[in-house]
Design a protein around this nucleic acid. Structure first.
Lengths: 337, 337
DNA sequence: CATGCGATATAAAACGTTTCCAATTGGAAA
DNA sequence: TTTCCAATTGGAAACGTTTTATATCGCATG
């Protein structure tokens, strides 16, 4: 009853040809006479033959499978990215093996080696920080690796990102443009380059360009979560000179910020103005709706996968370090101009 | 530089043993003298040998890979489930191939066949509705298939769920217990058995047990999204006899419902009371915080994967149709008793 | 009618493991 | 010493494809 265990050899016998010929028709090789092709196709249908991808992989050294290493798929941000990757993968007949690393170096390395052992044709990596050991492993990889929403930190790995520095600059500048002389910044862990160097730098540059002083305590560390945003803002609110404009490194933290403000009896955007980052679905699931930096997660995933297919097909790749455009989506957490 | 292309044969030569012995060492077979084992292990380290899982899969007919078919990984609900699956899979040394079906029958069937072609050892399936054609394919599958958060609709497939009927009953009953004589129900598509038969039935049974009449227009269809919940509630609010208690089939829809109510100038929970379903992270990201039915997504995924491993290892499985407990998490969208 | 050539088809060798079965080894018992 | 059995090890056949080198076919050409 299992359409299993019927091999290319069975088909060959049934059709009265050699297995090489069956292989050709299965793979759409044109060097087959139409009548032969039909004969074989009929045999295939009759027997319910399904090619064994493992055997194929062994013989051809290609598995049409790519590995995807992600910190945490249950995070809406990465889930979106993964969907972009998978859609494009499907488009190009690839499947993805998905693994969670929790941004943990050892898990990342272990996962990488497992994937390489499974002979994936390529890998897409997401992670906050590129540990040196990991990069060493990357360099030894026999297959191409593409970074998605992950800075390549000077290593010349193909990568797809937005310009985080500029995005943070734009967000901060927009807040400053609303007359604020002080802007709070709720950020993710600074050891991740994306926060510690890019967004942070953009934030400071915007202050500087506006001639505003940088104040250490206007910056509070969070861990991307709602709870951490809430807590950070509560702490901020205790100050007498609490900034009335907040830029949060993540939408989820921004929601926490807004609720902290509202819980304290203030209004957004009348008393406080808030800008988030990412434009996840969350941005519209709050009142007031969140003004946020649009980071096209799905697109980053899709473009990363497309880039990988190009590399795999040895197609021309004009630029290995792709920077996708960002913009700010204005919603109600900012006053009208 | 690639640690690639070194095979078991190279290791055998380097260590001065046969490849059978190397194979034993690699697979932790105890029938190897410790000194030999060490000799081989040294050779492995020296050469940087990494077993080729594809060849192994061909020879052993096991790939230590399972397929996961999910409607949409970018949906927070399924992302959570997937994380549970992956964690347990990792625990048992499996990897997962993840594919999105968009609950589309053709995609589901195509995906299933691709996975079977890749010789996965088993499959975990999630989907709103089990199309008959799909079940036919399931029956032909040479490997076990487990349903997660998906009703098996009378087919005797292993499945992991909660008791949706009872959960809906409990939620509705709780609302009724607060004195409401009328309860609105914002539901997902009714053609999905989980809504159309289970939740809906629980809702009606609760009304009935309380001696309340069922009113057709107290039920509004949504599609799980925030927007659909918002819209549904707006429609509901136009009525003079709008129910003041709402049970939403999904947290995301519940958020929409709450916002629609607030946008209309009413208060939750003072004017309206709302109960959601799933207890996703969203439930605490709203004011008032959402009272909701706890469906343990992560656990469902984890248990489903564990069940699959049991079946794969031919372990004793006491009950193939697992029903996990649910409960209602009380938060502020309900008045205090 | 032999020749030659492109178009098709075949045979057989990889691909890198696992695994069955046979062979060898080592040491305790006789 | 021998003998024997259990513990180790080795040999070689799968596993189901792809792929390369080789053969065959059909037919136009001289």
């Amino acid at each position: 009853m299992n359409s299993n265990n019927v091999t290319i050899y069975d088909v060959a016998r049934e059709a009265g040809v050699s297995m090489a010929t069956v292989s050709r028709v299965v793979n759409g090789n044109p060097n087959v006479k139409p009548t032969t092709r039909k004969k074989v196709q009929d045999a295939i249908d009759r027997l319910g033959y399904r090619p064994n991808a493992v055997a194929r992989g062994l013989a051809s050294k290609k598995t049409t499978t790519v590995g995807v290493i992600v910190p945490d798929i249950s995070n809406i941000f990465f889930a979106d990215l993964a969907r972009g990757i998978e859609d494009v993968a499907t488009m190009y007949k690839y499947n993805i093996i998905l693994g969670n690393s929790d941004s943990n170096r050892d898990k990342e390395i272990h996962l990488l080696n497992t994937l390489l052992g499974k002979q994936v044709d390529g890998i897409i990596f997401m992670g906050g920080r590129l540990h040196e050991d990991l990069v060493d492993e990357f360099k030894k990889s026999p297959v191409p690796i593409v970074l998605a929403a992950t800075l390549n930190q000077g290593y010349d790995l193909p990568a797809v990102n937005i310009d985080y520095e500029q995005a943070a600059y734009d967000a901060t500048e927009m807040l400053i443009g609303h007359g604020h002389k002080q802007v709070g910044f709720i950020t993710g862990p600074l050891e991740q380059q994306i926060n510690g160097e890019k967004k942070f730098a953009g934030y400071r540059r915007a202050l500087e360009d506006a001639g505003l002083p940088f104040q250490e305590n206007d910056v509070i560390l969070g861990n991307y979560t709602y709870a951490s945003g809430l807590e950070a803002m509560q702490k901020m609110l205790e100050r007498d000179d609490c900034p009335k404009a907040i830029f949060a490194g993540t939408d989820e933290m921004a929601l926490g910020v807004i609720h902290a403000i509202q819980d304290a009896g203030f209004s957004v955007p009348n008393d406080f103005e808030v800008v988030g980052h990412d434009n996840t679905r969350l941005a519209t699931m709050i009142r007031p709706k969140l003004t946020t930096v649009v980071q096209p997660m799905y697109d980053i995933g899709a473009v990363a996968m497309r880039l990988l297919t190009k590399i795999l097909n040895a197609e021309e790749v004009e630029e290995k370090n792709v920077v996708l455009p960002h913009r700010i989506e204005r919603r109600d957490s900012l006053r009208n101009d």
